[in-house]
């Protein structure tokens, strides 16, 4: 592995503590998982502005709404499986609809939760969140980008969902890189095929690009850290310039990032495309690598998909 492995959650905790120092309007809520989500760091530094709601995510979301309606910027954290589906009505009615300034930063998303199994491996949260009007959806690619994303959304009004994982992830961005919600960074330029990834799959796209180059294929890699609003310009330009696209996400292929990209391309610039992601099935217990392999999230899967779209390209 050529990259350092680091924790996104640790950077979330660090960013929150800094925000707490910088701004008095920041409050943080958690649902009995603060030591896992790392909001415990904020709780230790600013106990009077931290509110543990117990195992009551619905209640937590509405309580956050009350805070936001009173002028606070509320960060709400729990595991992604509990912070989306379990309290979907609360997010819809009391956060997205009234457009309140609440940042849901959910950890332990995706299949890399590992041993906890399907009950905890949410693979549909991007779908649930991106379909909500007013909601911004961000999947930071690594640990430094998690930090930058959290600092950025704190300055951005409105509801936001940030998806991070449990496992340490490869650090592929520079510490001094910029984070712009409206701009999907091109991580590697190329002219034959575009690989669009989000979260941990971006590093796999970079590895796939290396592999493809051995076969004389020049792949472009895009880090689509913000699923909504999507940087359509960068996506459409890449489709136009490379002529075929592969998406890769640690999420169900049903209505996740790949589907969102497909919709943009179908309406703007139609090219051969393939989505790499978890098929329409639930996960299971296992080690991260085993699960990534079984559910089709490997470098080989991306390479294979690239060859497929290249064949279909005119």
């Amino acid at each position: 592995m050529r990259w350092k492995m680091e924790s996104q959650r640790k950077q979330y905790g660090k960013a929150l503590v800094e925000l707490g120092k910088e701004r008095g309007d920041i409050v943080v809520l958690d649902a009995d998982l603060s030591s896992s989500t790392r909001t415990a760091d904020f709780a230790a530094a600013f106990p009077e502005r931290f509110f543990n709601c117990g195992i009551a995510e619905q209640n937590m979301m509405d309580t956050a709404a009350g805070f936001a309606a009173s002028g606070k910027t509320a960060f709400v954290s729990t595991f992604a499986v509990f912070g989306t589906g379990r309290c979907y009505d609360q997010i819809r009615q009391s956060i997205a609809y009234p457009k309140l300034n609440i940042k849901i930063v959910a950890s332990h998303a995706g299949i890399t939760v590992g041993g906890d199994g399907a009950s905890h491996q949410i693979i549909e949260d991007i779908a649930l969140m991106r379909v909500l009007p007013n909601m911004t959806v961000i999947v930071p690619v690594d640990s430094p980008e998690t930090y930058r994303a959290v600092k950025t959304i704190a300055k951005t009004l409105g509801p936001c969902y940030v998806r991070i994982g449990r496992a340490d992830v490869p650090t592929i961005t520079d510490e001094n890189a910029k984070f712009d919600i409206n701009q999907a960074p091109v991580m590697r330029d190329g002219k034959d095929v575009t690989l669009i990834g989000c979260g941990i799959m971006v590093s796999k796209c970079l590895e796939a690009a290396d592999e493809l180059s051995k076969h004389g294929v020049d792949a472009r890699v895009i880090n689509l850290h913000t699923i909504k609003p999507m940087d359509e310009k960068t996506i459409v330009r890449a489709a136009r310039e490379t002529g075929c696209v592969v998406t890769a996400e640690e999420h169900s292929v049903m209505m996740g990032m790949g589907s969102a990209v497909a919709m943009v391309l179908v309406e703007n610039f139609h090219v051969p495309m393939k989505r790499v992601g978890i098929p329409d099935v639930f996960g299971e217990s296992g080690a991260c690598d085993e699960l990534m392999e079984k559910y089709g999230l490997t470098v080989d899967n991306i390479v294979e998909a690239a060859h497929d779209v290249l064949k279909r390209k005119k």
Binding site: T63, A65, F67, A69, S70, G71, Q90
Partner: peptide, 30 residues
């Protein structure tokens, strides 16, 4: 709440109001 002056919280789906009120009350105490 974003359309009608004087409405403090958007409601309609039942069971949300007390929690939202609690958030306001915690903010007041803070």
């Amino acid at each position: 709440m974003n359309k009608t002056p004087g409405v403090e919280m958007s409601t309609g789906s039942l069971g949300h109001g007390l929690a939202a009120g609690n958030g306001m009350a915690l903010a007041a105490k803070l």
